[in-house]
């Protein structure tokens, strides 16, 4: 008797990414660079978030042809993004054999009320969250992994830091409560009581939690690890920089050795131009990607 697509198999797979870096790539060649640098997985995309932001228009799931090319180019797992609520895009990705699906606010939402019912799929999902309640709502829908939303495509880590800190602050707050105070806490967080109780007992999310959205340098990646994140997604930060090969390699080392200042100093040196970056305060409210999803 063997069982596939179980919760344990999905969340267990996410455990294997820990201490690793998942990189956005738009071509087979970029995927090879990411694998060579030591990425634990790649995210196959049509356009990186910085370009989506600059070019505007509706951002959708990548062309299956492109995803297949990337899957053929590397031996590491391949993830791909679908629009929030777009279960048909998710069905397509599952049929292609993609290893993980990111139901992502970086793409234009397809449903402004409902996220995908992720229990209905064998393939695991990762979702973005800005706080604990949002993370637990996604887990209740079947997400096997959580990442901070940050603010993708900006090269500015400040939002990812805000989301990571908020999530941990709320987890510590939950731990400080008495058991009979948890139902009120669940109401406040707008999250299922069962999951709130789990977090109260264990002091962490029930699934792996990565940083994402604005990581551009090895130091940014190390910072997110110090804030209790279990690994890092890097989107535009690598292939929008001057020397992607070198920067990708450096960010991987920074995540492994985040607690070793000597290694951090060594890998941070002479990386060429970082992506330019955007000051979040200058982005109009309605153009902020983190606001998508609920």
């Amino acid at each position: 008797m063997e069982e596939k697509g179980t919760l344990k198999v999905k969340t267990g797979f996410a455990e294997m990414f820990k201490g690793g870096v998942i990189m956005d790539v738009t071509t087979a060649e970029q995927a090879e660079i990411a694998e060579e640098a030591g990425a634990v997985a790649v995210m196959a995309l049509e356009r990186v978030p910085a370009d989506i932001r600059a070019q505007g228009g509706v951002a959708r799931m990548a062309d299956p042809k492109k995803i297949k090319e990337i899957m053929a180019a590397v031996s590491i797992p391949v993830m791909a993004k679908v629009r929030i609520g777009h279960l048909a895009e998710a069905m397509i990705l599952e049929a292609l054999g993609v290893d993980f699906i990111d139901e992502s606010e970086v793409l234009t939402p397809a449903d402004e009320e409902h996220h995908i019912d992720k229990w209905a799929f064998k393939v695991p999902f990762v979702n973005g969250a800005r706080d604990l309640g949002e993370a637990l709502r996604r887990i209740a829908e079947g997400a096997a992994m959580i990442r901070t939303k940050g603010e993708a495509g900006t090269g500015n880590v400040v939002e990812a830091v805000r989301h990571a800190r908020r999530m941990w602050k709320q987890i510590r707050w939950l731990q400080s409560l008495r058991k009979d105070e948890l139902p009120a806490a669940a109401k406040e967080l707008q999250a299922p009581l069962e999951l709130v109780q789990w977090v109260h007992q264990h002091g962490k999310l029930p699934v792996v939690n990565f940083a994402a959205g604005g990581v551009a340098t090895p130091a940014d990646a190390a910072l997110m690890m110090h804030l209790g994140m279990e690994g890092v997604f890097v989107g535009s930060g690598i292939f929008k920089s001057g020397d992607p090969r070198k920067r990708a390699r450096a960010i991987v080392r920074a995540v492994t050795h985040y607690d070793d200042p000597e290694v951090l100093a060594e890998v941070s040196e002479d990386l060429g131009e970082p992506m330019v970056g955007i000051n979040i305060d200058l982005i109009p409210e309605e153009e902020r990607l983190a606001k998508r999803g609920w």
């Binding site: 008797m1 063997e2 069982e3 596939k4 697509g5 179980t6 344990k8 198999v9 267990g12 797979f13 797992p77 599952e94 054999g97 993609v98 290893d99 993980f100 064998k122 393939v123 695991p124």
Partner: peptide
């Protein structure tokens, strides 16, 4: 196979 073929037994 890929992740969808992962299993427990």
């Amino acid at each position: 196979g890929r992740q969808v073929e992962s299993f427990e037994t």
